[in-house]
Design a protein around this nucleic acid. Structure first.
Lengths: 241, 241
DNA sequence: CCTTTAATACTAGTATACCAGTATACAGAA
DNA sequence: TTCTGTATACTGGTATACTAGTATTAAAGG
């Protein structure tokens, strides 16, 4: 099973900027991934000055990235004080699941109405199956994003995926946190995808929506109650107290 | 009936910055309003340098505002070329309506399940009725936002309104464009709101969702086909051609 | 000892300077 | 006339300098 998380120590060593492309989006992707895979744990301070220096970029593109992450709620910025990675919050997670589920249910309903050529998803399913069989979660995760995005495109509402993606960080963070060490956890998602598309192809909008709902909500099964959650992240900032 | 739009000439004269508050959000609100009320029409170029100078602020907070608007699709930025106000696009509008409707339908469904004390909305309805009777669309529009936001808060999913708001610009722009000159256009929205809350209070989630759906979709009644739309905005950039 | 206050060391917000890429207008060649 | 190459005047992206506000700490007073 391939590694999911990185050590905080070599956080900056994994960063390699491509100077011929805009820096801000690269910084955004990097920071988002660090937060999602808990390399930057909840409560971790993110100083613009320090990070810009360490990442060998200026504060400007880093700020652009951080402002976007703050908009998604993955970073909390207090003016003139500092920014930290957002704490884990069950309510926030449940709301993210709510929003995502509602949007993606509507997408598959549209697809069921408009019809869907299953062939166009064949390649994606092939990649998913390979990754799931090999228990290569990193690859599966990547293809999973492509799959969901493609559903929105095929439904004629491509921007809907952008909206889903903007709330998905909270979900992914929880997934990475709770699923580390669970083998073959991508297999279930693969089967969920199959079920969803089968319902769509059958023209069964309600059924497809229900399968999508179960699929999206499955992450909540792994979430402990809020008390346990607060305990978990309480370890981190209290270490030096 | 109060004026809805401003002339482009006094665009910058209506701008008054409060230096004791963060500038970037103020610039965002200003630009967004200018785009929504067509003071900045589709296709209008927005040069960072020129606007920063005219607004008497620096490029940095202006850029922050523009990047947010670009994220919402109200501005299109081409690197090293320039930024323009996004063209009107029926598909984009319909998708915005789709996303908004889906999210707000789910909100009122939640409210119907969880129960709702109608009293907490009494004050909002009072303001709405006053504004609707006086045909004061500016005030009504403001309270309308508060009303929808409050529904999300009461449903326990406050961030959902943020998501709705991020796609709402396209809807509002169309509304301002098509509703200029139509008297008492807020009265229907007021009645829609009443219907929605009545269904919620009755515990009728499906009915509330249907009323919300009709309410949100009503803006599409005013939209001409895409061809007419393109003609409308074709007048603008072609003036000096 | 504890409380209060002032100095200091941070922070993010803002302003400005610089850079590299793009479009345009114009001159010159075919 | 038409096409092409080039000089120029823009654009947004980036780097950096500066400002103002906040938390911390240490010193002074009780």
């Amino acid at each position: 099973m391939k590694a999911l998380t990185r050590d905080t120590e070599d956080l900056f060593s994994t960063w390699q900027v491509n100077p011929s492309l805009p820096i801000a989006p690269q910084a955004y992707e990097f920071l988002r991934q660090c937060i999602v895979d808990n390399t930057l744990p909840p409560g971790a301070p993110i100083s613009e000055g320090i990070f810009a220096t360490q990442l060998k970029i200026s504060r400007t593109p880093l700020r652009t990235a951080m402002q976007q992450l703050a908009g998604e709620g993955l970073i909390v910025t207090r003016p003139q004080v500092g920014s930290v990675v957002a704490m884990l919050d069950t309510e926030r997670l449940e709301e993210a699941v709510f929003m995502r589920s509602v949007l993606e249910e509507a997408v598959v309903r549209r697809l069921a109405e408009r019809g869907l050529d299953r062939q166009v998803l064949a390649k994606s399913f092939a990649v998913q199956k390979l990754a799931a069989d090999a228990d290569d979660y990193a690859t599966f995760f990547q293809e999973d994003e492509q799959f969901h995005a493609k559903l929105a495109v095929l439904a004629g509402v491509p921007n809907t995926w952008r909206l889903v993606h903007s709330v998905k960080g909270h979900v992914d963070r929880q997934r990475f946190r709770m699923m580390s060490g669970i083998p073959y956890r991508s297999m279930r998602a693969y089967r969920d995808h199959l079920k969803i598309v089968r319902r769509i192809a059958a023209g069964d909008g309600d059924g497809a929506a229900l399968e999508m709902r179960k699929h999206v909500h499955s992450v909540l099964e792994l979430v402990p109650d809020n008390g346990t959650l607060l305990q978990l992240q309480a370890q981190l900032p209290a270490d030096d107290g």
